[in-house]
Design a protein around this nucleic acid. Sequence first.
RNA 1: GGCCCGUUCGUCUAGGGGUUAGGACGGCAGAUUUUCAUUCUGUUAACAGGGGUUCGAUUCCCCUACGGGCUACCA
Length: 520
Amino acid sequence: MFNIFESHSKKMQRKVRVRYAPSPTGPQHIGGIRTALYNYLFAKKHGGDFILRIEDTDQGRYVPGAEQYLIDSVNWCGFEFNEGVHIGGPHAPYRQSERKHIYKQYADQLIASGNAYYAFDSNEVVEAKRKEAEAEKKNWQYDQFTRMRMCNSLTLTDTETAQKLSENSSYAIRFKTPIAEDVVINDLIRGRVVVNSKQLDDKVLFKSDGMPTYHLANVVDDYLMQISHVIRGEEWLPSAPLHVLLYKALGWEDAMPEFAHLPLLLKPDGNGKLSKRDGDRLGFPVFPLNWTDPKTGEESSGYREAGYFPDAFLNILAFLGWNPGTEQELFSMDELVQAFSLDKVSKSGAKFSLDKARWFNQQYLQKKSASQLLALLKAQFPSNDLSDAQLEKIIDLLKPRSVFAKDILSASDYFFTAPSLYDTKTVEKKWKENSPQIVQELQEVFAAESDFSAANLEATFKAYLEEKQLGFGAAMPPLRLMITGFGEGPSLFDVMEILGKEECLERMEKVEAIKIATKN
RNA sequence: GGCCCGUUCGUCUAGGGGUUAGGACGGCAGAUUUUCAUUCUGUUAACAGGGGUUCGAUUCCCCUACGGGCUACCA
């Protein structure tokens, strides 16, 4: 007990160093980015470092561009690494393929200490064993119960082993899992998890191709890079006991990082964890940025291109599996860093909600000023001779009706082009027998006005209604139809003010067009 | 199959031995608005089931069910 306390407090004093360690097998989906984010938040909260390490020990699955994609994604979200493949650092290189020379010595060390052994069994032999067991509906694994019946340095004599090695026989190095030992993981999110080592198989640590497996490379690098906390997805929980055992076997128990296994992001439609292959199938992007598969050319859409703001996306991600325990929902990055805590991370998997995501973006859109949005949208507006002030007015008018910035763009057409088509439903419902006459009369009334401000237009309009004993419903919809082509939208007098007298009168001229040109 | 993790409104979640089980999204209704949207108000809806422990359990324990993960010389 005393010892546990001591080593615990020693760990608490360590400088916080966390890493995000993806395998470059394709674009990281939102779950991966969330893991990166939580690592970052945890690091910053504790004044620590955040490291990017690329775990590319499986050459067969390497996908070019995946690494850069991840870096671009993280940058778009607004956070950064302190060390990593792209920026270097005191523990460079940060790509495991470039650290290849490092791992063998630790595998050798494990063999020397009796914690690992050479396994000469071919893939076929092992596969055959599995198939055989499967046929009997049993499970077979290379473990403490079967290893003495296999071809390895445990069953071979030393000279036989030495001969095999000198013959350049293909071999792997397997971990010699301790016999029936309770392995304890004190997970920061899940609490105490105990697994008996007899359940574990003798995992390959070093592959016959000269590369380490994930397990070895991961533990070695975390140790060498002085990682204090391993924050990763729940899919790693089953191999955490192996990792703990490896730290012990390597004599690094005191330097072992703390573990925190994050809940998974689930598919919103049925079952299973969210995966890369879900692509666009789910009706929402699963990737932060657009991605084109270099092999198949298949394209997947990203949040950036879908129109999400990075700060909104960040907020959405942060809340998928974490909450501050207060009722605040909108968080800036700084606020997230302040509020983040691992013990507020939930234990169960979360399903993504498109509605909630849209709501977040809408909140962020409303918070942006017209000038901020103008900077974003100016180049995309159709060519026009409106002043920035007028464009900002348009933005302010359209903003409350929008979820994405691009919604403002698509709703602003009639400010730049006179409608040539008119909304069918509105025409059917609101364009009455007397509508042409009302529009014509209003045109005359407005033509007489020199003050084309929204306030004056409204007053004039109301005076006209008064005089003619008409209700709003008789005059407003037809007028709006003529000016914008739609049955709904922002305050029409504001629209007219921006459009100006000449343009408005011109649009009101085309009462005949209503009958021939409609749209849905 | 085995091992491990999980389970509060439809969704994200708060809470935690005694609460009217709270919030947000969505839905619905109403108010505001020339219309639409915004905004505001109200409303809808949950502790998987069964056993314990306890004066009392949704909260603690066990079992079951369900969901998920892992079970590769992939990560």
